[in-house]
Nucleic acid binder design. Structure first.
Lengths: 251, 251
DNA sequence: CGCTGCTTTGATTCGTATCAATAGCAGTGG
DNA sequence: CCACTGCTATTGATACGAATCAAAGCAGCG
């Protein structure tokens, strides 16, 4: 465990100071049109902007700890973060992976039900939770966006439950590769059967997502490569050669 | 498969007729203060009531099919229903269990991501989804309630992912019994270490919740009985003798 | 060049699924 | 009241998949 804590020491309600950089211009934000902020008009955006701070999070650092007071919520601007639930004896299960424009944190709740840790260097637009809760309560459109997003997340989580409870190691890895291929190769075109992408994390993390060990995960990938289903040009690169066959394996 | 479909054949937008009974008096509804309707005042309640119909669902009948158009949403008045995701080859994973006052269905979404099937005879207050979506969009307080509920469901689902991905059969069964004990023995007092309750479903369903087979589930229960942890007075009754020990097993 | 951490590969064990048979219970009708 | 039927649950024997334990390979970096 080399992970270290992000400590929002001088966090205060309202205009938070002492950490991060003030948000200067939401209008030019990279996720302006994809994040929940897309529901706001210029005036509202300026108001919310005053509550937020841009915050860099280095890979491996933890923004929220499972069980601790959920002091902050945030939008992801850049990088990839994981949501982790751990058991008393140290087993870990990744219960969510968030990308730019995704929302993190637990609004309207006291304790964070999971840890949030950066898997790559990341940048987030962070809010004091109470301030955000108040703002959201006063802005139905924002709340509507948040509701839709939460419903989508719930669907995704439930679909993942099927994978965790009922699929074999081979099916798990195949499903994982297909989902990552879709989420990582951008909203762009996935025309051909071949598709390559770079995973933002290593084998152990794949295992923690799939409920497997690192050895089993590695073996499955090696076997798929041997069968010509995929190439592994480098540790974190994956090229799916035969999408249809991969879909068949995913069950 | 003896499950049969509930077919809302003459479903129309607005005041739906031709199925169920019209809602006569929301004010005296058994779940009036616990369901999302609790956010509404008398006038709003009357409006929503006009959109709803009381509908009985017999045990084993399916209200919504995975992948089909999600035509309806509903509040549970009585009984217990399950949310099921199935794979092409017939494996099933129960991804949620809903009780009276819980909300079911997928607002703001076209396809239902899972099937909803009654585990016991049940009664629901059912709405045409589109009408409900419109009503919700116009009533921020209702939407707020729905958001909180969805966030809670998401937390529960993610917690369950840890169980499915990382826990042993013994830990799964122990966790399950503790959770059911809490959700079934009502909001009442759970004073003593001993607690008994009646499950609304059989062994196969427990297995489908835990991602196990019926045999493994049965063996774990028998073993726990042999060790004095619990009693099994009848097929569906469970008495936990030593709650602390059970919590230790749950991991 | 030789660390250091991550990944792959191999040998073995263990837990759970699978296959198969029996037991128990609920409902039905003689 | 009891025999019969169908369904659910339990119990047993065995097989298989993934975990575990152990070692070697490989890449990045001072």
């Amino acid at each position: 465990m080399t992970e270290t804590s992000f400590n929002p020491s001088s966090l205060s309600t309202g205009a938070a100071t002492g950490y991060g950089e003030p948000v200067t211009d939401c209008a030019t934000c990279v996720v302006r049109n994809r994040a929940i902020c897309a529901s706001l008009d210029a005036e509202e955006l300026a108001l919310l902007g005053r509550l937020g701070r841009r915050q860099r999070v280095k890979a491996g650092h933890t923004l929220l700890w499972e069980g601790d007071d959920a002091l902050v919520v945030a939008n992801v601007l850049e990088g990839v973060l994981k949501l982790v639930v751990a058991s008393a004896d140290g087993r870990e299960q990744i219960v969510g992976v968030v990308f730019p424009s995704d929302f993190i944190g637990r609004p309207f709740g006291k304790e964070s039900p999971y840890s949030v840790t950066a898997m790559t260097d990341a940048e987030v637009c962070i809010f004091n939770r109470k301030s955000f809760d108040d703002f959201a309560s006063a802005h139905p459109d924002l709340q509507h966006k948040l509701l839709r997003r939460t419903l989508d997340e719930l669907d995704r989580a439930r679909h993942w439950m099927m994978l965790l409870g009922r699929k074999s190691a081979e099916e798990k890895v195949a499903s994982f590769l297909l989902e990552m291929s879709e989420r990582l190769s951008g909203q762009g075109c996935n025309s051909g059967a071949r598709s390559g992408f770079e995973l933002p994390f290593g084998r152990q993390q794949i295992a923690d997502i799939l409920g497997l060990t690192i050895e089993t995960t590695s073996r499955q990938l090696t076997r798929m490569r041997a069968e010509g289903l995929l190439d592994l040009p480098s540790r974190r690169e994956i090229v799916i050669n035969d999408r249809a066959a991969m879909e068949a394996l995913a069950g």
